[in-house]
Nucleic acid binder design. Structure first.
Lengths: 189, 189
DNA sequence: TGTAATCTACAACAGGTGTTGTGCTTTGGC
DNA sequence: GCCAAAGCACAACACCTGTTGTAGATTACA
C-alpha cells in the first residue's frame, strides 16, 4: 500500500503555514496537527522527528516555488528584450511577496539551516541550482549580464524581499520601481 | 540601589550568543543562564518574561552595532571621495560578517518581529534611524546618490550579508569585490 | 555599625513538547 | 468475502519551558 502522499503534502503545507505564522519556535507536531485539522499525533506519524518535519516542509517549499509549465513556456518564449526581462523579474518579486507564507517560511528555514547541516546541504544545492538556471536562461535569451551580474541581482532582490516582508525602511516607494532600478543598474549596463 | 547593569548586559550578550547559535527556538531563560554561566533562574530574575528577554537582547544589539566614537570621527573626516566611500561600505560589511553572532541574532529578531508587534515598532524605528543617518552622511559628504540610491544599496548589502551568513550561492567571489560592484553600479553613476 | 532595600539563588508549578508504542480501522489484491 | 499490510487515532512517557514565590546574602548609606 502506497503511502498516503496527499495527506503528507497537506501536512507539509500546514507546516509551511505554521512556520510562517508562528516561526521556528511555534513549529511543533501538535501545531501542525491543529493547522491541518487532523487528530493529534498524525504529524508525528508522518514525520517521525522534528528534523524530518522540517525536511518535509523544505521539500514542499521546493515544489511550491518551482517554476510551473507556463513559467517555463513563457521563459522560452521571451525574446531577448530588455523591457520584458525587467517585467519578468518584477513578476518573480511579486510572486514572492504574494506567497508571503512560503517566502517567510523559506527565510526561517535558511536561518535554521545555519545550525542544521543535514538541512543546509539540500538547501544550498537547491539555491545553487536555481542560480545556475537563471544564468543559463539569461545567456540563452541573449541578454547582457553574466554570472557576476546575475549574482548581484540575486543578492539585491533577496534583500529587497526580506525588507518588504519584515519591517521595511522605505515602504512608500513602489516595489516595481525598485526592481526596475536594480535591473537597469545591475544588468542592463 | 541601582540595578546590577553589568550583569544585565552580560545576560543580554549571552542571549545574543544563544540566539545566534540555537535560533529563536533555543532561546530560553535557562539556556541564557547556562551561556552566561550563572545559576539557573538568574535570567528569569532580570528578564521577567520571554518577551522582556527578547527586548533586552534587541536593546543590546542596538548598542553593539551603534557606530563608535572613532567611526563617527572617521565619518566626519571623510572627504567626498568615491574610493573612500566604497572602502567605507566595505568596512561596514566586513564588520557585519565578523560580528556573525550579532548579525545573525538580528536576522532572527527581524523574523520574530513579524509576529510580535511590540518588538516590531522599536526595530522598525531603529532601522529607519540608521537609514536616515546614512542619507544625511552621504549628503554631507557631497557624494552622489540620494535617498533612492542609498535605499537600493541598503537592500543589496542586506541581501549579500544574509547570503554570506547562511548558505551562499557563490562563496568563491570575494565579498569586497561584490561590494565594490554594488557601490559603483548603484551609487557612483 | 545598624538597617532597610535590593540582589541572588533556588525550588516549585502547571503546561507544553518530542517521541514511541499499541491496538483498531481501512485498504487492495486474491 | 478474506486477509495481510498499511494507515490511523490515541495514550503514555520523560523531559523542557515560562513563570512565580521566597528565604537568605549583599549592599549602600545614615
Amino acid at each position: 500500500m502506497a503511502r498516503n502522499e496527499a495527506r503528507r503534502i497537506a501536512l507539509a503545507d500546514a507546516g509551511v503555514a505554521v512556520l510562517a505564522r508562528e516561526g521556528s519556535r511555534g513549529l511543533t507536531h501538535r501545531a501542525v496537527d491543529a493547522e491541518a485539522d487532523v487528530p493529534t499525533g498524525t504529524t508525528s506519524n508522518y514525520f517521525r522527528s522534528r528534523d524530518a518535519l522540517i525536511q518535509g516542509i523544505f521539500d514542499r517549499i521546493g515544489q511550491r516555488l518551482a517554476p510551473t509549465e507556463e513559467d517555463l513556456a513563457a521563459r522560452s518564449g521571451i525574446p531577448p528584450n530588455r523591457t520584458l526581462f525587467a517585467a519578468y523579474i518584477r513578476d518573480i518579486v511579486r510572486r514572492l511577496l504574494e506567497n508571503r507564507e512560503v517566502t517567510l517560511a523559506l527565510y526561517e528555514l535558511r536561518l535554521a539551516a545555519v545550525r542544521q547541516p543535514n538541512l543546509a546541504a539540500p538547501l544550498a544545492a537547491w539555491q545553487r541550482a536555481g542560480f545556475e538556471a537563471d544564468i543559463t536562461f539569461n545567456e540563452a535569451a541573449g541578454l547582457p549580464g553574466g554570472r557576476r551580474e546575475i549574482a548581484l541581482l540575486h543578492y539585491a532582490i533577496e534583500g529587497l524581499v526580506f525588507d518588504r516582508l519584515t519591517s521595511s525602511i522605505d515602504p512608500e516607494t513602489s516595489t516595481d520601481e525598485i526592481v526596475d532600478d536594480f535591473v537597469s543598474a545591475l544588468i542592463l549596463v
